[in-house]
Each structure stands twice: as C-alpha cells, then as structure tokens.
Write a protein that binds this DNA or RNA. Sequence first.
DNA 1: GCAAAAGTGTTCTCAATACACCCATGA
DNA 2: TCATGGGTGTATTGAGAACACTTTTGC
Lengths: 245, 245
Amino acid sequence: MKESFGADLYIPQLSVDCVIFGFHDAQLKVLLLQPMGFDYWILPGGLVGQEEGVDEAALRVLKERTGLSDIYLEQFRVFGRSDRPTIETMKHFFRSNHLNEERFGWMLRRYVSVGYYALVDFSKVRPSADLFSERFAWYDVRKLPATGFDHSEIASGALGALQLMLDYKLVGFNLLGETFTMMELQSLYETVLDRPFSRNNFQRKMLNLGILERVEKLYTGAANKAPYLYKFKSGEHTGPVPGLS
Amino acid sequence: MKESFGADLYIPQLSVDCVIFGFHDAQLKVLLLQPMGFDYWILPGGLVGQEEGVDEAALRVLKERTGLSDIYLEQFRVFGRSDRPTIETMKHFFRSNHLNEERFGWMLRRYVSVGYYALVDFSKVRPSADLFSERFAWYDVRKLPATGFDHSEIASGALGALQLMLDYKLVGFNLLGETFTMMELQSLYETVLDRPFSRNNFQRKMLNLGILERVEKLYTGAANKAPYLYKFKSGEHTGPVPGLS
DNA sequence: GCAAAAGTGTTCTCAATACACCCATGA
DNA sequence: TCATGGGTGTATTGAGAACACTTTTGC
C-alpha cells in the first residue's frame, strides 16, 4: 500500500467549514481564503482528527485563521448531498499546484461537511491564510465573490441561522467590542436582519432586556451630543460553543 | 487485505440517528429498537452510502423502520465528540452475537453521527425492527429506558430542537392525522412544550394564524357538544426535508 | 335539568410602533 | 444659533392572558 500522507490522522470524508462573521463599516463580513493559483475563494475549514471532537476541529481552524480563542461558535447544518462538488474542485487544485495525486488521493473523495458560524470582534482578529491559500480577505456576506465547492450556499445558510438566533440567544454582542454605542448595536441588527429599526424603540427594547450596562459617555468630537457607551453584562449568552456536540 | 463486509459501501465513521416522534395517549413518544440480546435500547439509525446524501440516508432509515415515505424530517445537530461511546458498545454487541470482529472490525471505530428528528402520524406507522434488533417499542420521550451509545442525549437534543421549531415553522401538524379537533392540537402543544394553555386563547391563536380549515362536526357520542374537526391548509409548512443538505 | 365539553365574547396588561419633543455639541 | 445626532416621553395598536358567559349533548 502506498504511503498516504495524513490519511490515517483524520476521519475520512468528513470536514468542517467555518463562516466567520465580523462586523465592520456597517457590513456583515465573512472571512474567505483564496487557494493557491485560483480565482475563486473558499471558507476556512479543515479535517477532523481521529482523536478530536468535531467542535474542537472547528475551534482549531478558528484559532489558526483568526488568532483568537474563546470565540462564539455555533454548529448550524451538515452539508452532505452526494453531489457536492468536492472531488472535481480538489482535482483542479492538485493539478494547479503540481501535487502528487497518489499521495493525496485519499482526499479525492466525496466529503460531508459540518457547517459552523462564528462571531468575532472584527478589530481583534489577526487573520492569516493557511498552507494552501495565497491570501485572505473579508467580504460582505451579501456580495460574495465566486466561491469554490458549495461554499456560497454554506455562507448563506449561516446567515439564515444567524438571523434566527440573533434575538433568541442575544448573540449579536459577540460581533462588537467590549463597549459600544446604541447606534452601533442598532446598525448591527439592521445589517444582519436587513431591515430598519426606529431609533428610540430599538433603544427601549434593548434596555428593557436588562442585559446592557451603561458605562460612560464617549467624546467623539463630533458636532452632537456625546453618546453613552454600553457594555454587555457578561453571563449566559456570551460563551463559546453553547452545546458541545 | 482481509475481506471487510460492507466497508467500501459506506462513508467511514459517519452515521445518522433518527429520533422518530409520534403523538399518542397525550404522550410524545419516540421509536426505539432493542439490539439482539441486549437490555438497553437505541435509536433507529444507519450508515451513509457512498452514493447517498446524508438526508437521503436518514429518509431511507425512516422508510425502513416506519413503512412511511414523505415524512417530515429535520436535521438538528451533529454529535461528534471524540469520547462518544461507540467502540465499546459495538464490541459488546459483536461479542454478544458471536460476530466475527475481523469482518466487521471496520465498524469498531469512533463514529460521528448526524442527528435528525422526524414527525410522524402515530396511527399510520407500521414499525419494524432492523436486522440487528430484536424488537421495537414506543417510549415517552421524557421516560426513556436505558439507552446505548449517547442516544438519550440525542433524544433530548431532538426534543429541544422540536420545542424551538414548533411555533416557528408550525410543524406540529405532522404529528396529527388529516383532521383533528382543537383539543387534540392543544394537547399536542401542551405535551411538547410541557406547559398548559388556556382553552379559548389557544383556539384564537391557532385560528388567527389562518392556516386551519374547519371541516365538519365530529359526533363523539359523548355527553357534550360535538367538536369541530380541523384540517391543516396544506402549503409551505408540511413538506419533508425543508433544507436538503 | 344537570354535568361536561365546546364555542364565543370582554377586559386587562404589556410590548411593539409611531410620533413628538428636549439636550448637548461644534461650526 | 442652527444643524446634527443622542436621549426621553406619550399615544396607539395588537397580541396574549384571565375571566365570564352561552351552546350542545347524553344521562
């Protein structure tokens, strides 16, 4: 039997893909990687080690790509159709990079992928590309470039799941920094849910939840009243990996 | 290399497990199987064929165990911790049934399982045990017997997911027959959500949704007013497999 | 006619909405 | 002092909860 590099280290035909959301410039952005010598982009992802939990694999990918641990992470769906375009894309990649198909042939199979989304503080992320990628970039989740595999489908699935969860578990705060103004929070909600909120009612709704703490005033130097800064009362709704699978 | 029966037919180390919910006697029941010569119970499940989608595998299991196709099916979570008790349980099973570990040794690995829940009309199901099981039985989801693997965790995860979805997607009707009385529907909601509703408010709420059609009166022969029968206006919320993964 | 279950109506409360008004700040 | 953005207050609406009342049916 030929030497297959890495074949025995991982669970065969299983991968994780992470949709990493960051909020910046009033846009909900997604971190993408561009594989070597390719003109399309893919989501950060990886294989699951034999001794590793699936959630742990996703956290490892997140740590490698963002430099952060303690990230809010949620599993949202398995992408397992038999016609997922995994083999063709991988072959294409191998040929473009002159990789030996005999060594990495074990990867040329149909893969089932577990989809995760993560919420990060955009300003804290120090992204880095992986070994097979040339570069990374943040893209507006609603204006994605051409993607490999079925990764645009995974990204829009993640957006739908996030929209569902946003109020239910109050996860939005994970996309902001330690402190934020009410307008920033509102802008986040409007961007994610893609609909406007009225300024004053939004404020009342958020304050009535009883999970915001007013910190101090922020002097912007702008020609208006200085807005308050708020802090999320850390508690149940912040932690990463709610239901470790 | 030794002959491994079935090893190449399936995606290695990946399985599906189905929590099949039925509503009967004011209880939310789950269909369980008892493996040959064992004293615990397990959920219906199976492996995923190489040419088969993960959802398709779940539908196949459902059809085999219930005799029904067109079942409401929802994927809810992946169970992929590295310490899932799959190997020990399988070994135990092989030894009890004098199966050759050399032939089926490829199954003695850590498995990742995709969890599904299904909603069926209890009266239409004709359950059957699988090849490795002695018998089947319906159990109240809140009074499960001792289960193998981590299947009680999967079952309670499914219950949680169903509770979340019950109102959001109005999936409850899949647990009832073609027509039903308002009391049956209310009893279903009370059982699933484990809390009481007031009779009249529940009725108004349901009718205001505009998805119920009043059919005719039902003569029960009881010493009371005959209740109306209702029908679910078939549309968006009935179909099986909402997001084919 | 009475008990039991089904159907309908009324009131109260609370949260979401829309609208209006006041405050702080820099040009 | 005025435009800009932030903060607060008030009326309206609609859904949900609690309560009471009427209708049908077999005994």
